[in-house]
Amino acid sequence: MNQIPSLIAVFAYLSLLTVGGGMAAYPEMETLSVNVHHWVTQDQLVHFYSLGQMAPGPNLNMVAAIGAHVAGVAGAFAVLLAFYAPTGLFALIIGRLWIRLENWPWRTSIQNGLAPTALGLMLAGLLTFGKTALRLGHSAEAFLIGLNWIAVAMAVLVLVLMLRTKINPALLVLACGVIGAFTFR
């Protein structure tokens, strides 16, 4: 069955939710691509998102991996276009308008209002992501009990290194991949 029209519709919609970063769209991405369209499993989505952290450029280029997984190169191309074109056009038009509205008092209000909204949605996305990424196998148990504590320890170590040092995050991700290959088999 041709999935490309649904891929385009879903990723064009998701792109509108990426306020302040891609993580904001993650819960909706999970709902639509796992539960509604069955393109990927929860684990596969986490894998793709994590691989996206190792690739250069915008980390949401991982949407191309979903497109490719579902419908090959054409699927990847369709998803990329759907994901980047509408918001790109929007950014171009509103960007020009926004500069002219420099002295409009509500401009500051909107920016101040969007800042906590973006943070809240990012944290919500992170929790959804972490629930799958740090869980033990396919455990359906309560979240805390089903945690894979080795994975949690790795995540905390990465967190601390990121906040305390200037180490390249792609290296950390790669290192954890190697450690994981030996630990989680």
Binding site: L51, L119, V158, M162, V173, G180, R185
Partner: peptide
């Protein structure tokens, strides 16, 4: 699968660090 589980754990830490520095 095992390697990707490690990658996902690292990504969780990484993304959380981004959140903290942004916040």
């Amino acid at each position: 699968t095992a390697a990707l589980k490690g990658v996902a754990a690292a990504a969780s830490g990484l993304l959380f660090a981004t959140f903290i520095s942004l916040a």
